[in-house]
C-alpha cells in the first residue's frame, strides 16, 4: 500500500490518469465498446465521424471506436505478457549468474551479451520467420528478444549485492541459499527491473505494432493498432482518420509509458526544490530555529 502511495507521489496525477485510462480501457473494453469490433456491416462501410459510429467505420463497416478499444486491449495484453515472461526468465538467469559467479556467470553472460548485441526486433523477426506469423509466436519471439536486457540488469544488481556485508552476514548467520536469493537478492533486483520495465513498455507496444504492421504479428481480423494501420493504408486519401486514429493512440500510449519511466527515474534522483518551495522552506526553518 505504501509502495503504491509512494509511486503515485513520484509519478504525479496526469501520468497516472493517462496510464490508468489505457489500463481501464483494456480491462473493461468489452463492456465499453458500442459494437462488436469484428462485426462487418457492408451497408454502413466507410462512414466518417457520426452519431451512430462516433469515429466512423472502416471499409468493411466495422466500428472504428470499438476496434481502437479492442486494439488497446491487444497491445497492453501483449506488452504485459512479454514483460512478465522476459522479466521472469531474465531475472532467473541474472540471479543465477550474479549469485554463483565463476564459470556459470561467464557462460551465461557470453550468451546474454550475444543476445544484446543483436537488435531485439531482428531477433523477433527471425523467430517469427521460422515459426510463422501468429499472435503467440510474436509474444514468445519478443519475450526471447527481451530476456537479455533483464538478465543483464538483474545480474548487475545481484552481483553487486552478493558481496555486500549484509548478504555475507546472513551467510555467517547460517541463512539458506533459497532465503538469501528469494528474500534478499530478488527483491533488490525487482526494483530496478520494474523501473526499467515501465519505460520499456512503450518500446514494446511500438514493436508489437511494428510486427503486426509487417504482417508478422497479430493476424486479421483481430483488432490491433499496427494491423489497423496496414489495413487502412490503401484508403489513406479518402479516409485519413483510419490511419491517424490508431497512430495517435499508439503515440499517446508510448509517450505515456516513457513519461512514467522518466518520472520514476527522476523520483530516485530528486531534483532541487522550486524557488517558491525554497522560499517557504526558509521561512519555516527560521521560525523553527529562532523564536
Amino acid at each position: 500500500m505504501k509502495a503504491i502511495k509512494d509511486l503515485y507521489k513520484a509519478v504525479g496525477l496526469p501520468i497516472c490518469l493517462l496510464i490508468g485510462f489505457f489500463i481501464f480501457i483494456a480491462v473493461f473494453g468489452k463492456y465499453l465498446s458500442p459494437y462488436d469490433p469484428n462485426a462487418q456491416n457492408l451497408l454502413k462501410a466507410s462512414q466518417t465521424f457520426g452519431a451512430e459510429h462516433w469515429f466512423g467505420t472502416d471499409n468493411l463497416g466495422r466500428d472504428t471506436l470499438s476496434r481502437l478499444i479492442a486494439g488497446a486491449r491487444t497491445t497492453l495484453f501483449g506488452v504485459t505478457l512479454v514483460l512478465l515472461m522476459a522479466g521472469t526468465v531474465g531475472m532467473l538467469i541474472g540471479t543465477i549468474s550474479g549469485y554463483f559467479g565463476g564459470w556459470i556467470d561467464e557462460i551465461l553472460m557470453r550468451i546474454i551479451d550475444f543476445g544484446l548485441s543483436v537488435p531485439s526486433l531482428v531477433v523477433a523477426l527471425a523467430i517469427v520467420g521460422v515459426f510463422g506469423p501468429d499472435f503467440w509466436n510474436m509474444i514468445i519471439a519478443l519475450a526471447i528478444a527481451w530476456v537479455p536486457i533483464y538478465a543483464r540488469l538483474t545480474r548487475g544488481v545481484v552481483a553487486a549485492a552478493v558481496n555486500q556485508p549484509y548478504i555475507e552476514s546472513l551467510r555467517v548467520l547460517g541463512a539458506s541459499r533459497t532465503r538469501i536469493i528469494v528474500k534478499h537478492l530478488t527483491p533488490a533486483a525487482l526494483g530496478s527491473v520494474l523501473i526499467y520495465a515501465s519505460a520499456d513498455a512503450g518500446v514494446l507496444a511500438l514493436n508489437i505494432a511494428n510486427l503486426s504492421f509487417l504482417g508478422l504479428g497479430v493476424q486479421p481480423p483481430q483488432a490491433e493498432w499496427g494491423q489497423m494501420l496496414v489495413a487502412a493504408l490503401p484508403y489513406l486519401e479518402e479516409a485519413p482518420r483510419l490511419v491517424i486514429l490508431p497512430g495517435l493512440s499508439l503515440t499517446v500510449m508510448v509517450i505515456g509509458f516513457n513519461l512514467l519511466g522518466e518520472a520514476i527515474a527522476l523520483a530516485k534522483n530528486p531534483r532541487p526544490m522550486s524557488k517558491r518551495r525554497l522560499f517557504q522552506r526558509r521561512r519555516e526553518f527560521l521560525k523553527e530555529i529562532a523564536a
Partner: peptide, 8 residues
C-alpha cells in the same frame, strides 16, 4: 543553512 527537499 542547507535546504534539501527533505529537510533544512
Amino acid at each position: 543553512t542547507l535546504h534539501t527537499p527533505k529537510t533544512s
